[in-house]
């Protein structure tokens, strides 16, 4: 597994940035310089200083602390979303890809239906039914992600289904379930892994988008998207607010994308 920096810069950059983000997020769970929700009217929209390294927002809350907490929220939602999408998507994709026929057609039409909806709209519908909050946002986004993964896994299963080693397994008497999940699935993992990484990024963006629009995580919980939204009104007064928040989002996504590309190249 030893690869030198020069050969795979992206892998290293990705690892470093993602690692940094993870550390910040975990730290944020236990310790922040200030209470992310503590308002301090004396410091409304304070600029960058030694005491508040990213300044304060319009309620006097320390931006850096809120970003740490927000990172935590964002990452939890993103990971949860991808988990739901991958788990259910894989099961659906495996079954339809392997069996084909009528059930495949029907399932794929459902898939297409979900994919055809503008995602934010669908998320809005689900949230309005279930209510908002971290958990529900995760579930809503997760549902949105299922069809994408189902389609990818289905494609991989279609490819592998007619290969000789699968015929061989059938001849040995392997049950269908065993062939699907023990024989074929491991071969789809490389493809899945890279889509997981992209999925993570999409989830981060989706959650940020939803929170930006106000239908995601609700106050007083902070989320990077919500912070970005709030910072809009103060763009000219205190651009640092938007810049810091936006940069963190961008960095998070960039790091993961680099990691993804680095892993792909390595494989």
């Amino acid at each position: 597994m030893k690869v030198r920096f020069k050969e795979n810069r992206r892998l290293y950059i990705g690892l470093i940035i993602t690692g940094l983000m993870l550390i910040l997020a975990i730290t944020g769970k236990f310790f922040t310089p200030y209470d992310p929700n503590a308002m301090d009217s004396a410091n409304k929209l304070a600029g960058i200083s030694a005491k508040h390294i990213m300044g304060c927002d319009n309620f006097g809350r320390d931006i850096f602390s809120r970003i740490l907490a927000g990172l935590d929220t964002t990452m939890v939602v993103a990971v949860g979303t991808v988990l739901i999408g991958v788990t259910f998507g894989t099961v659906i994709g495996a079954l339809t890809g392997y069996y084909g026929g009528r059930p495949d057609e029907i399932m794929m039409r459902f898939n297409d239906a979900v994919l055809a909806f503008p995602s934010l709209l669908l998320a809005l519908v689900i949230i309005s039914i279930m209510g908002s909050g971290k958990m529900n946002v995760t579930i809503a986004l997760g549902i949105l992600f299922i069809p994408g993964y189902a389609r990818i896994v289905r494609g991989e299963f279609l490819k592998c289904r007619n290969l000789d080693y699968v015929q061989s397994a059938r001849l040995m008497g392997a049950s269908y379930l065993r062939i699907m999940f023990v024989h074929i699935l491991p071969n789809t993992i490389p493809v899945l892994l890279s889509t997981v990484a992209i999925g993570f990024n999409n989830a981060v963006l989706a959650e940020a988008g939803m929170s930006f629009l106000g239908i995601g995580v609700q106050p007083p919980d902070s989320s990077l998207g919500r912070m970005l939204s709030e910072s809009q009104s103060y763009l000219f007064l205190r651009p640092g607010y938007a810049l810091c928040t936006g940069s963190v989002i961008a960095l998070l996504i960039f790091g993961f994308a680099m990691l993804n590309e680095g892993l792909e190249k390595h494989a």
Binding site: D164, S168, A169, P186
Partner: peptide, 29 residues
């Protein structure tokens, strides 16, 4: 009856070790 396939490159599961592949029919049985 069992079969030896034509293409030695597609007839063995690329994600598994040789030992696993050979043991599999016995595990299933």
């Amino acid at each position: 009856a069992q079969m030896v396939f034509q293409d030695p490159y597609g007839s063995l599961n690329p994600a598994k070790t040789v030992g696993w592949i050979l043991e599999e029919p016995l595990r299933i049985q």
